[in-house]
């Protein structure tokens, strides 16, 4: 069985003089909840637009399910891209019938997706009477038609109230528990951190980082130490192979390590040098912290 659901190779796209994305590559595997994180204008929607066949890339290529994409591949993908687009004069149900027809989904599925997105009671109301949150939910309902293997959500919680946001997150964990691969584009770090297993961080159309979310978190963490003989500990610390820097705050020593840094190895190293720790903990940084670090670094380069 195919393991790689999506593979993107050095995609680039310009709109007139503005580079929307440049040399973007990523791989999404089956069952991932893959976050594409980046500030507004970083190329998230452009990337998804290309992957969904509505924008043409200038260079690069991508494959869905291990083959060059066509409309058949798109039928296996449910997507919400930017704003929800439906016929304003048709009811929710009529709009879903049109999409169900395209995706070879049975009309009986319409009730199911309306229930899943809490729109069942409003099914026979016209799209133009919907609030932004309801429109967004209808777009998610239409993406769920035909039991897609991949669900792509571009800023799915836009325009939703806190209850709506919580419901969408619940929905994402529900479908991903069923084995559906989810690709979530968002500028909300908190959202990606809560929901995703993998993340690619985009800025100005470039990938700054891609990998597992917990890797990001551990690699960017600090190890907090204390010891009876702190002065000696500070002297031997730089000898640790993965040492980067340290700071002393509130009487504790905060050690920054490389991504291979490991609290157990550090503890063993210190012990071998005759230092016994009275405190050892790992402080994970939030993705937000990491994100700001990454994006500020790259703007310094620019």
């Amino acid at each position: 069985m195919e393991k790689t659901v999506l593979s993107v190779k050095s995609l680039s796209k310009k709109f007139r003089n503005i580079t929307a994305i440049s040399d973007l590559s990523l791989e999404v595997e089956k069952g991932n909840v893959y976050g594409i994180l980046g500030p507004n204008g970083s190329g998230k929607t452009t990337t998804l637009g290309i992957l969904l066949g509505v924008l043409q890339s200038d260079t690069g290529s991508y494959e869905w399910f291990g083959s060059t994409p066509d409309s058949g591949a798109l039928k296996r993908i449910g997507a919400l891209l930017e704003s929800p687009n439906f016929y304003p004069y048709l009811t929710a149900r009529q709009n879903l019938k049109i999409i169900a027809g395209i995706r070879n989904a049975d009309y009986s599925e319409i009730d199911r997706v309306l229930l899943m997105t809490r729109l069942f009671e409003r099914g026979d109301h016209k799209f133009q009477t919907f609030s932004l949150g309801m429109k967004q939910r209808l777009a998610i309902a239409s993406a769920l038609l035909g039991n897609p293997e991949v669900l792509i959500l571009d800023e799915p919680t836009n325009g939703l109230d806190p209850t709506g946001i919580a419901e969408i997150r619940e929905l994402i964990s529900q479908v991903s528990a069923d084995g559906t691969t989810v690709i979530l584009a968002s500028h909300l770090l908190d959202e990606v951190q809560k929901v995703c297993s993998h993340v690619a961080v985009l800025q100005k159309g470039k990938t700054l980082f891609s990998g597992r979310v917990d890797e990001v978190l551990s690699s960017s963490g600090e190890i907090v130490l204390n010891s009876m003989n702190a002065d000696q500990m500070i002297r031997v610390l730089p000898g640790y192979a993965e040492y980067v820097s340290h700071t002393i705050r509130n009487g504790f020593v905060f050690v920054k390590t490389t991504s291979q840094g490991d609290p157990a190895a550090l503890n063993a190293y210190l012990f071998n040098h005759g230092i016994v720790c009275t405190h050892l903990s790992v402080q994970k940084k939030s993705l937000e912290h990491y994100f700001l670090e990454l994006t500020s670094k790259s703007s310094e380069v620019n």
Binding site: R76, F86, S142
Partner: peptide, 13 residues
């Protein structure tokens, strides 16, 4: 209505 875009995304040929 941008429905052509929506339908292409949904897999319309």
């Amino acid at each position: 209505f941008k429905t052509l875009r929506q339908q292409i995304i949904s897999g319309l040929d």
